[in-house]
Design a protein around this nucleic acid. Structure first.
Length: 677
RNA sequence: GGCGAGAUAGCUCAGAUGGUUAGAGCGCAUGAUUCAUAAUCAUGAGGUCGAGGGUUCAAUUCCCUCUCUCGCUACCA
């Protein structure tokens, strides 16, 4: 394995439109923190970089909804998250933010460098524009009626009612949320990064030179590369972000995906004037900790940007994790289905390490995983308390009872003693090997095996019995138990920093180096230790029940809002109504449109004619069962080509709250083409 | 529909270039023990390794098809 002089560890910049939850922690920040602490313990030159990602449309939207400025929104969450990370013991060297001046400069410079090198393509396209407000509209700023479910408050990119993804032109009655006016298409100029230009280089760099990357990461990259890369716009029309630093770019900012990863660079600049040695020296190992949603940005796009710039190093590894679920349900900020870090820190004061332990133990390293409060409780009570806390407690209590807290001398050791002492080294090496390959669950398990080893040693050696017959032998036993305890303070330090600090205070020692681990004389004979307290305490059912009840209340609230009836629409005239030509018809033939999931191609008899309608109902109807059914259609809807098939009209469906579609049919058979009025 | 990842004991996960009884932790059962927060230690029960086919002397491990979960992507008038 190549040896590096220094390390640059980055953790995905949390988006500053909401607080941090356990999903972020398990996927990104706990692993990156363990890795960083381990490297520091080894005495490596390492810096850990993070900060708030503060640009982008969702923040401007949130600001608008709350009637405040975007800066106020990001100030709020930046403060909350910075403090929560600190309190939780995520030891970044810097937690910066992308609304900083230094970031604006860095991002502008980066853009300009590429611009001057001619790395961008300039292209104009048509975008929606609000003539009243005088600005271009992001998809999110356009609202209208969802063509799918009739929700009048659908966004231009997605209908939140039925989950359908949309483009603004799909909307019925589109209007700008800025001024309420009807948006028009207008030409606008943007810069594109031609990712396709880097495709073959990326292919080699990832697929050939980094076969050691995690399979989920490698596979995802391969999938993107095989699909072929397209030029990607690096700018957009928005007034919140880093302005595009060239002329004729008024009202344009860098696209958030372009400026966010540059945030790693600007944060490093802010941290140290020596930033370039971390970013531009081949002997630096850069590692990006991210969640799986970020793979494409960190493995494809950002490396392409760095490569285009020319002077930067590339990541050695991108150990992306999968997602964490909560009590069998996807974590969701908007549905409030989450355990929020800042709330956890209030509900479980002083228990940072318990959450760190629980999240690391079941981190979604190879597939999505589930966090449950019961598991959290079990991890604490059966492992931290029973195995680790208990071993430490018995050792320190016995030492205090027998020797008044003075470390006894180790005399002659027997074969079992020796194999236990050797085992310490072996475990240390195992932990190290796992950490180097980003297998944090395994590393933690091996580290805990040291406490298991200690418990077994005490049980086998039985000092409480031997003390009656051979007190000298007990000195050796307790010396070994104490050396194991001292080793724990090193090996578990990256995982449980708060508890190990406590333990060091009881042992009356200071923090040692990683390479001291494995030594069997960490505590000198005669060294005085202090009276211990409890390293961990049991978590009672009531505390767990309270958390589960909190989630149940959330679920109930969500269900109530989900079953809420869509509000009535505004009054229309009778004339409006009669403009719609709604009729009965009969399905003659039905077949699935090839290579689609939802589309059914139907031939129907409308009484007027036999025509084809394509409808997105294939998930709820088998072609065989729908043939012969009498249905209702809107016969005079303008025709539209779907998947190359001319669709004339629309089939009427009732959509249940769970999204299930049901045909709207006449109660008795009537002749085809009967008017519905 | 396309692509990627996954499916192994009640739970969380290892693992095998194909080869005698498939592993660990937690949970569970039994026994031992009392220094310790009813903690610990030992032993044990639990798996046709997602389903079906194929290749092979031999497959859970290789190949094919399928099902389910997650993600990306196409599609929904």
């Amino acid at each position: 394995m190549k040896k590096f002089k220094r390390y640059l560890v980055t953790s995905a910049l949390p988006y500053a439109n909401g607080p941090i939850h356990i999903g972020h922690l398990a996927g990104v920040y706990v692993p990156s923190d363990i890795y960083t602490r381990y490297l520091r313990l080894k005495g490596e030159d390492v810096i850990s970089i993070c900060g708030s990602d503060e640009h982008g449309v969702p923040i401007t939207l949130k600001a608008r909804n709350e009637g405040v400025t975007p800066q106020e929104v990001v100030d709020r969450y930046h403060a909350v998250n910075k403090k929560a990370f600190e309190d939780f013991g995520i030891a970044f060297d810097i937690y910066s933010r992308t609304s900083n001046k230094i970031h604006y400069e860095t991002a502008s410079d980066f853009f300009l460098k590429l611009y001057n090198k001619g790395e961008f393509i300039e292209k104009s396209s048509e975008q929606y524009y609000d003539e009243e407000a005088g600005c271009f509209l992001a998809d999110r700023y356009i609202m209208g009626t969802c063509p799918h479910c009739g929700n009048e408050n659908a966004y231009g990119d997605q209908c939140e009612k039925c989950g359908t993804s949309l483009t603004p032109s799909d909307l019925i009655n589109p209007h700008s949320t800025v001024s309420g006016s009807k948006p028009v298409l207008r030409e606008t100029l943007h810069w594109y990064l031609p990712l396709d230009k880097y495709e073959s280089w990326l292919r080699k760099w990832i697929l050939e030179d980094h076969k050691e990357w995690k399979t989920n990461v490698y596979g995802q990259c391969k999938s993107w590369l095989d699909q072929g890369l397209q030029p990607r716009a690096v700018s957009r029309d928005l007034d919140w972000g880093v302005p595009v630093p060239v002329k004729n770019a008024a009202g344009k900012v860098l696209y958030v995906w372009f400026d966010a990863p540059i945030g790693y660079i600007s944060a490093t600049k802010e941290l140290t004037p020596q930033w370039e040695k971390y970013w531009k020296d081949k002997e630096t190992k850069m590692v990006h900790f991210i969640g799986k949603d970020n793979i494409v940005f960190h493995c494809i796009i950002f490396p392409a940007m760095l490569k285009a710039e020319g002077s930067f190093i590339l990541p050695e590894n991108v150990p992306a994790n999968e997602f964490l679920n909560l009590e069998n349900d996807k974590i969701s900020t908007s549905r409030n289905w989450a355990v929020w870090l800042h709330e956890y820190l209030i509900d479980f004061p002083g228990k940072q390490d318990v959450l760190r332990y629980a999240l690391c133990s079941s981190a979604p390293e190879t597939k999505d995983n589930d966090f449950t409060w019961k598991d959290f409780q079990a991890r604490n009570n059966n492992e931290l308390v029973a195995i680790l806390g208990n071993f430490v407690n018995r050792t320190l209590v016995l030492t205090n009872n027998y020797y008044d807290g003075k470390v006894p001398a180790r005399g002659k050791t027997d074969p079992n003693d020796n194999s236990v002492l050797n085992e310490i080294v072996r475990l240390k090496e195992n932990v190290e090997a796992s950490l180097e390959t980003f297998r944090f669950r395994e590393a933690l398990k091996e580290a805990m095996n040291l406490a298991r080893l200690g418990n077994k040693y005490l049980a086998d050696a039985e000092p409480w019995k031997v003390i009656k017959t051979d007190p000298d032998r007990v000195k050796t036993i307790m010396n070994i138990a104490l050396q194991i305890t001292a080793n724990l303070t090193i090996i578990l330090e990256p995982f449980l920093p708060f508890s190990m600090e406590k333990l060091r205070a009881w042992l009356n020692i200071s923090l040692m180096k990683w390479n001291d681990a494995g030594k069997t004389d960490l505590l000198k004979t005669g060294h005085i230790i202090n009276k211990p307290g409890l390293l961990f305490e049991k978590i009672e059912d009531t505390a767990i029940t309270r958390q589960i009840d909190k989630l149940l209340a959330t679920r109930k609230a969500n269900e109530a809002s989900a079953t809420k009836i869509v509000p009535g629409k505004e009054t229309v005239t009778f004339d409006d109504f009669t403009r719609l030509d709604i009729r009965t018809a009969t399905v003659l033939e039905a077949e699935k449109v090839p290579k689609t999931t939802k589309l059914l191609k139907l031939k129907i008899d409308t009484g007027l004619d036999i025509r084809t309608i394509v409808s997105g109902i294939a998930e709820y109807f088998e072609p065989e069962t729908i043939v012969g059914k009498q249905i209702s259609i809107v016969a005079n809807l303008e025709s539209r080509k779907i998947r190359g098939i001319e669709s004339k009209g629309m089939i009427l469906m009732a959509e249940d709250k769970d999204g299930r579609l049901v045909l709207v049919s006449p109660a008795d058979k009537v002749s085809n083409g009967s008017i519905i009025k």
